[in-house]
Amino acid sequence: MNKIFEDMKTQAMPDESTVNALIESLPEKPRKRGIRFSHIAAAAAAALSMLTITAGAVSDWTFSFLGDFSSAFGEKTEAYNIVESASYSNSASDMTFELVGVSADVNIFRVMLDIYPPEGTEFTEENKPCMNDNITFDFYLLNAHKGYGASGRFDVLSDTPQKMRVMWTYSCSAGIEDREIEFVAKKMTRTKDENAVNTDGNSIITDNEGSVIKTEEIWYTRIKTGSAPQKVKYEPGGQAIDLDRLPDSDERCRIFVTSAEIGSMSVKLNGLIRGDLVWRDSTFTAVKTDGTPVGLIFSGGSTIGGEPSSGLKDGDIILLFDDIVDPADIASVTINGTELVFK
């Protein structure tokens, strides 16, 4: 080692008093706490988490890992993502899914998902997990009143019970807040039953063959986040939402306003449930009170974590306007031509 570095390393040590204070203060019992948040610094940052999954042993089941993540970071006011590329590679040692995009402020963000076999083993053709293209990865940036953030999900299906290790890395030149992850492990099975019962009340996912994945148990991680948006401003409702793929729409809908200043809004559709991707096929429009249409930079993304950084709930859809718009000026929002009526 370079002598000067060696000398610096010698100096870069905590005082003995600091060490002793730490050792003497080691708690004997866990401190009470809920989910702990780790706020990661500005500049390029990476959030890492690793999870070992052990799937069950029923051969005709498809096992799935769902990872929800969301982050809020920076003090930005606008950020809309443009997905530049997505790639997927698969090898015996690992499989990687990578998505690269550019946000409106020309920050490059990158999401990587690495899936490894158990240590000391390799995937084989028989046990290699596969990505379900249809529902693999949703990623979007969203505006939250504290800044902007990202939220996403990934979903790995494997036909063979096995262990796998999953690591996801999210990095962005603007920095992020990382969150300690609450792991909730469940198990998922695929079925052709179109009337699959949503046993846990919040998850039905359609696979790329059109089959409904019946949720009995789902493996997923949840990252609790805390940068809640502004409170609900509108409580609209009264009009049925008739969307072909909306499994259980009812008579009401609600509009949530995430942030008046930054021109974003989210739409809550009752009956739209976590994992449902109806928004992919939907067309959203918004019109201001003066009749002017509002451009939508991005729309979509039913939330999946329950409590992503925006504080949105399952079924929420985010609309990002292409201008600074006060949601009070939004007269109407339509979905596939169906107007959501504000109360």
């Binding site: 990661i40 610094a41 500005a42 940052a45 959030a47 890492l48 807040e177 990382d178």
Partner: peptide
């Protein structure tokens, strides 16, 4: 190492804020 890096980022972030 990983935890220290994360904690450091958090510290820097808090400072910047």
């Amino acid at each position: 190492i990983r935890t220290a890096v994360n904690m450091s980022r958090r510290a820097v972030c808090g400072k910047h804020r």
